[in-house]
């Protein structure tokens, strides 16, 4: 499947990685893509490291297994970097997108061994979330950053999806905050 993009998420339980993977998948759905999104269910407890997987494709997706060789790895919590090999199995020319204050160069220097061909991108999604949404929920801004660094989802489709789906559940201010967080992450990603 040449059009298949595989994303692996690393986060801690409670940070919204499952919601983020759903956000990306449903945005892709609205653009007529096929998708799959599955968290890896283990012992559910707040703060425990978890992984989630998202597949996006223009063709129907028939495989049902964990993603071992991701095109994109997204890390929602930088404190995972010293303990978890987030680059494990990554494609040689993959993209590593991290929620951190660090620049990509700093990530390479101090934090984690990244294969040479892998492109490191960073965005301070937590800070953006605090300033726009009012809480450290980095999942919406990280989706905005993803839209910038890849073409797997479109930023306008993402904003449209957030606007429509969040409006059912949240007050307008929260919806606007989320939209603003996408705009800022889109602009500020390194």
């Amino acid at each position: 499947m040449p059009n298949l993009t595989e994303i692996r998420w690393h986060a801690r339980a409670g940070q919204g990685a499952v919601t983020a993977s759903r956000l990306v998948a449903e945005t892709a759905m609205d653009d007529g893509q096929y998708f799959q999104s599955m968290p890896e269910f283990g012992a559910e407890r707040q703060g425990a490291p978890l992984r989630a997987f998202t597949r996006i494709s223009s063709d129907p997706i028939e495989i049902h297994n964990n993603i071992l060789n991701p095109d994109i790895v997204i890390v929602l919590d930088e404190t995972l970097l010293p303990t978890i090999d987030v680059c494990e199995g990554m494609k040689e020319d993959g993209i590593l997108l991290i929620n951190t204050r660090m620049t990509p160069e700093e990530v390479r220097e101090v934090s984690v061994e990244v294969p040479a061909g892998v492109q490191v991108r960073t965005v301070d999604a937590s800070n953006i979330a605090v300033e726009t949404i009012g809480r450290d929920i980095p999942n919406t801004p990280i989706a905005g950053a993803l839209a910038k660094v890849t073409n797997v989802i479109n930023v306008d489709s993402l904003k449209k999806y957030v606007k429509n789906s969040f409006a059912e559940k949240f007050p307008e201010k929260v919806v606007e905050g989320n939209i603003a967080s996408i705009d800022r992450a889109y602009e500020e990603v390194h």
């Binding site: 998708f35 799959q36 999104s37 269910f41 997706i61 049902h64």
Partner: peptide, 12 residues
Amino acid sequence: LDGFITSHALDR
């Protein structure tokens, strides 16, 4: 349906 693989994964 297969537990988690089909029961819990988001699918189209």
